[in-house]
Amino acid sequence: MPPGDLERVLCGLKFPTDPNLIVGLDSADDAGVYKITDEIAIIQTVDFFTPIVDDPYWFGQIAAANALSDVYAMGGIPKTAMNIVAFPVKDMDISVLRKIIQGGLDKMKEAGVVLVGGHSVEDSELKYGLSVTGFIHPDHILTKKGFKAGDRLVLTKSLGTGVINTAIKGGLASSKAIEFVTHLMATLNRDAAQVMKGFPVHACTDITGFGLIGHVAEMVVDSGFGISLWSEKIPIIPEAFDYAAMGLVPAGAYNNRKFREAMVDIYPSVKRAVLDIMYDPQTSGGLLICVKKESADDLVNKLKGKGIDDAAVIGEVLSEPKGKIVVS
């Protein structure tokens, strides 16, 4: 749903509380965390959506990588998953669904996750995703808060999947761009999450539907800090810049901008297409890692050593202006 709408729906509703619920609905975090013992907590998340690429096998992989990402973003390890399927049985050949589920299964296997069940409904529109459960040590949870002035922000995947997907819908995307974005979206955030465990990381999230600025905004709100983003350092999918400049920007990007622009200061030198991409909703986007300044370059080098070539330092935490995002 567009940003802001969900807040309006949930506003004022009373949710049951429990002392063992460490991360719940009151924070805008990626997944919920429930403590079982002092050593172990379970981490739960769910995500599903309509196809974004034509190939059903790749769609299955992307949907699974996307759902698993929330667990990685909080520092957890995903363990079990359940399929969520909505399928137009009358209009579509059942073999399509088989390929989607095969894609999901292969991605789960890669992540070391077992499928324990699922639920399917008949629907006019195809949807697929997972409900995921993982484990995490209660003292080692990474949230969107806890960063300090001077921390550097490291992004692990290029931005622009929404723009490329809009170009695909318009039949204007090159086959090179389609292939790049398909592989990028199907890439697990597992390796990035593993690498960051060896570093002084203060906060982490993954970049999805609200776009880079939307997710940074969630970090900044009530944090007592500001964040500066360096537009020229941001990794962008090849061709996304050109597509954005010619108006292939998804409506979601404009919604994201409208919702957050009041807290964003923009240098006049920032290119409009880059700014559009910074608001662009991402599917299965990368991790945004807040790491101690001195370790940032080392972290990027280690990520690149693991094959995460897009990783880059893209900004820093500021003590002033509080509650603002400064795009330079």
Binding site: A244, K258, R272
Partner: peptide, 10 residues
């Protein structure tokens, strides 16, 4: 709004 912005950009 999105179409307006996109057509102008194009």
């Amino acid at each position: 709004e999105a179409s307006k912005q996109n057509v102008c950009r194009f």
